[in-house]
Structures are given as C-alpha cells and as structure tokens.
Design a binder for these strands. Structure first.
Lengths: 141, 141
DNA sequence: CTCCCACCCGTAGCGACTACAGGGTCAAGG
DNA sequence: CCTTGACCCTGTAGTCGCTACGGGTGGGAG
C-alpha cells in the first residue's frame, strides 16, 4: 500500500477523512500549502500534504481551533519540536474543555430536574419547563 | 419599580440582560415582534416584549437554538400551553446536551492522559501530544 | 446654541465549514 | 471517434448567533 504518491484532491480527501471542500477551504485560509498543479490545473498532493491534513483532522477531533492547530503545526516543525509550548497549549485547551463540561453539566441538571417534574404530575396546571423559561426572576420578596 | 412602560431599546436591553444589537437582530429575524415607534422612529417596547425577550434569553442560557425557542414560544401561547410537546422538545435537547458532555469527556480523558505522560518524562525523545496528532493511524501491521 | 448620548439603518465580520452554479478534464466503453 | 460520467476547477453564498462598525438623526442638559 504505497499509494498516495501524487494524490488528487479527491484521493487526499478520502485518504485523510477530510471533506473535499474543506481541503480547498484549508488551502484558501493558508492552513494547507498550495500544492503543485497538473497542466490542466488539477491539484497534485504529496505524502507530506496527507500527513499535515491528518494532523489537522486529529487536532479538530480533539477540539482545537484552526488557529491552535496552526500554532501546533508550527511547534511540531522538525528541528523545533517545542514540547513545552505544545503542552502549554494542550493544557489550556483542556481547561476550556473542562469548563464546557461544567457548563453543560449545570444545564443537564436543570433540564433533567425540570423534565422530571413534568413527568410526576402530568395533570398539573402549569408546565414546569415553561415555568422555568417564564419565571419572574426571583419571584418572591 | 413599575418601570418598563414604554421602554426604549436601550432600556429593554438593560432590563432583559440582552445586548442592544441582539435585540435588533431578533427583530430582524422575526423572533421578536416589531414594536411601535415614536414620531422620530425610535422603538417603544411594552411589558410583553420584555417578557418575551427574557424568555428568549433564558432559552439561550439553557442552550436551546433560536429555532427551538421559536417553537417553545409557540407552544407557550396562552390557550395552547402544549406541555407535552414542550417536554418532548426539552427532552430532545437534553439528549443533545448529554451527547455533547459524553463527547467532551472522551476528549478530556484523551487530553489529560496525554498531557500527564508529558509530565512524567520531560526528557523523553518524543512529545506525547505531538505523537497523538501525528501517529500513523494503527501503526503496526 | 452646542454638546453628547442614545437612537436609527445597513452592512460586514467571526469560525469552520458546506453547498451550490457553471464550467473544464480525462479515461473507458460503444 | 465520440460520448458518458466521474472527477476536477473557480467563485460565491449560506449556515448560526451574534457583534461591530460607519455614518446619520433626535432630544435633553448646560
């Protein structure tokens, strides 16, 4: 399987698991380098494009922004390999992920509590979910 | 404090906690009804606008999309009060929230495991985070 | 009368794609 | 040789939920 020598954009998309249109988008925004072209203007990709694109896809799967991935690619350059900075970036991202989890768990609690109330008394005059949305703020006082 | 009789857009924004520009945006996309205007063309809001806007804000805080909030507002109409449908919508949303939490937890595990490895051996030849991003997929075979 | 603030409108930008429209290219089959 | 159909090209617009800006008006205070 030593394929991927002179891939078309479609081949690259398939091999990397990245949508074809997205590959062109990454080129447009400078995240992927512009490849050589055939006489007819078709893009021709090499192995290093594939490796870079897979790196980007993995980064996205891990929730990094394209700007963060840009920075990671920079830090991953051969000769550079700035592991300390990479770790810093990853740790910052991890903090964001944890913050989002905390936010969503608060949401989950509120929603599930409210929906459960709804279950309990189907014949109640008011709808607990709507109450939550309409409540006059602090209500009393 | 029986203010909010004939609010300006700025007053409404402050009272509701929604950004002023966002209020105009909600009107533009039809989420908020177009209010009356003064002779000079300034918007004049009534209490029902404020109640609706706070409903929207609460919905957003709970993570509902504007389309879902549109649906909830519809289901909350006096005379309708379709609690069953409201519950269904909320339950669907709760499922999405839980799915997102599950996704993020997977991320969190991967990231924190990898970063921890980085801690352990600061003098290791390779960077665990970069390894994660660059790994040749299944590696062997 | 002038100052300034709050309001008006329309448009463009964000992030990360995705989806066209309207063409050109290329290899295989009839 | 010609057609078919899969692929490729470019450029632009749409998505979601705002946010920001530029340039203009209105109205009250000093």
């Amino acid at each position: 399987m030593r394929a991927s020598r002179g891939l078309t954009i479609g081949g690259l998309a398939t091999a990397s698991g990245v949508n074809l249109e997205t590959v062109r988008y990454y080129e447009r925004i400078g995240l992927m380098p512009a490849p050589d072209r055939t006489a007819a203007g078709h893009r021709v990709y090499e192995d290093h494009h594939l490796r870079r694109l897979v790196f980007v896809r993995r980064g996205r799967q891990l929730g990094f922004s394209l700007d963060e991935i840009r920075a990671l690619l920079d830090l991953a350059q051969p000769g550079r390999r700035a592991c300390g900075d990479v770790k810093k970036l990853a740790a910052m991202h991890l903090d964001e992920v944890r913050a989002k989890i905390a936010d969503l768990r608060r949401l989950e609690t509120i929603l599930s509590d409210t929906i459960r109330k709804c279950d309990g008394q189907a014949d109640a005059p008011a709808c607990p979910v709507l109450d939550l949305l309409e409540a006059d703020a602090v209500a009393s006082s």
